[in-house]
Design a protein around this nucleic acid. Structure first.
Lengths: 248, 248
DNA sequence: ACAAAAGTGTTTGACGTACACCCATGT
DNA sequence: ACATGGGTGTACGTCAAACACTTTTGT
């Protein structure tokens, strides 16, 4: 573990000029294809150097007067049309040498990436085809080598997604207004893995918590008994806010 | 929730020039004064504008060729000498207008703050007195109004500290090599609050987990039965890595 | 001897786990 | 009728909460 720099060295560094940065925002956008039980991430084919023709996370550089979050939403809006989404900041990757552009104008401008994590509903997410249509949902298990350090960012986002799902009600942000308990269960299994919990126990736990209300409406999906549609009740959830709530 | 920007507007924004950034690193450095059962945060008195004579988090601007984490360690090293510490990135605050310096050269340079969270051992942390000695441990319950958005950053760090303590073995990074179970318990109570758990249950749970090994050595602290010194066994902890481990 | 600090044990109830089983619908 | 998906119930083990109790020291 570092943490100790001799005083003399520190003083000499005091004279070092400050770095100038361009700040980029990269989004890790997940969705769940419940029909095929696959967790997907949105990738774009890069159409300029560096990393021309590599897949990468949708990203952009931050403009004047634009907040980081605004930039994150801007990329979203350029690539995808959605009704519901969950978005939060992920991590900031900022070592020197992470962007090859720095090499050309050595020690001129640094490129820093603030990554954002998003979860959208697959069924209602409409991809916006670029001129060259280089945009696609990729199963996270099959992503190729990506531009920059984007594989690392994706891995980080994936970890966060699993945690979020276990400890917070993100799922309800990407489910439709009303949903069956099986919809919910499918979402959890595809993200967390097949054997995260027995269905009946999952069901019992969630219903006992009391923030899902029965709408009374039933839907039939092919054969089998029709399922009840439930609705997430944000008010009833309030007491659990910030408390370590476990869905697992 | 935003997320939809009309295509036309997005295109017009495409012409907006990129923002130029200076990147700062601000550290939220916590320590626990177990003697007085207080959670402390390290503050420095600002000696230049903006916010001259305000208390603020120790911070610095990132230099050429320096990584974010390097910068975080550099501030640490300038303010404090420690043997053990835990450090991790916290959050990146980057809206326009968060730094008054932006106003002077309007739409010139933006100031962005990547905050880091640190936990150090109070007893062995040696503050490095500046020329003007404007540096001090403040009880988190009594921090005054700080420079910039540092109160917000501190609040964020405090939340993270509580979570870290509950779900990960950070405590052992700031305890000495060997410690009594009461030392550990004190640390938890001062951070998490008086009634987070009964001592005997806390004790039983931790011992059953099996990653604390009895050194056989006993220490007497005033009256009362001497306590056994325990040691954290990182290898024995390995199986719990990444698993939702609850100390509460 | 007594207080103070460390450590042990026991009872209780809540809850996760793993099943077995019943219900309602389409074909 | 029976397969299919939806939903209920139960028996068992584990563990957190609360608290009573024993052990070992200093004064």
């Amino acid at each position: 573990m570092p943490g100790r720099i001799p005083k003399k060295l520190a003083d000499s560094l005091n004279q070092q000029p400050l770095a100038d940065f361009k700040v980029g925002v990269d989004n890790v956008i997940f969705s769940v294809d419940t029909a095929q039980n696959r967790l997907l991430v949105l990738l774009v084919m890069r159409q300029q150097e560096p990393f021309l023709n590599y897949w990468g996370l949708p990203g952009t550089l931050v403009r004047q007067g634009e907040s980081l979050e605004d930039a994150a939403y801007r990329i979203m809006a350029e690539k995808i049309r959605v009704k519901n989404l969950y978005l939060e900041q992920l991590y900031t990757f900022g070592g020197p040498k992470r962007d090859p552009r720095e090499a050309t104008d050595s020690y001129g401008v640094r490129y820093l990436s603030v990554s954002y994590f998003a979860l959208v509903r697959f069924e209602e997410a409409e991809l916006i085809a670029d001129k060259v249509a280089g945009i696609a949902w990729y199963p996270v298990k099959q992503v190729p080598q990506l531009a920059f350090d984007h594989n690392e960012i994706l891995a980080y986002g994936h970890r966060r997604l699993r945690n979020k799902l276990e400890y917070s009600p993100v799922a309800f942000e990407v489910l439709p207004e009303t949903f069956t308990l099986n919809d919910l269960y499918q979402l959890y299994t595809t993200v967390l893995g097949e054997n995260f919990s027995d269905y009946s126990n999952f069901r019992a736990r969630l219903l006992k918590l009391g923030f899902l209300c029965d709408t009374g409406i039933k839907v039939s999906r092919g054969a089998g008994r029709p399922a009840t549609l439930y609705k997430f009740n944000a008010d009833a959830f309030a007491p659990f806010k910030d408390k370590p709530l476990v869905f697992i």
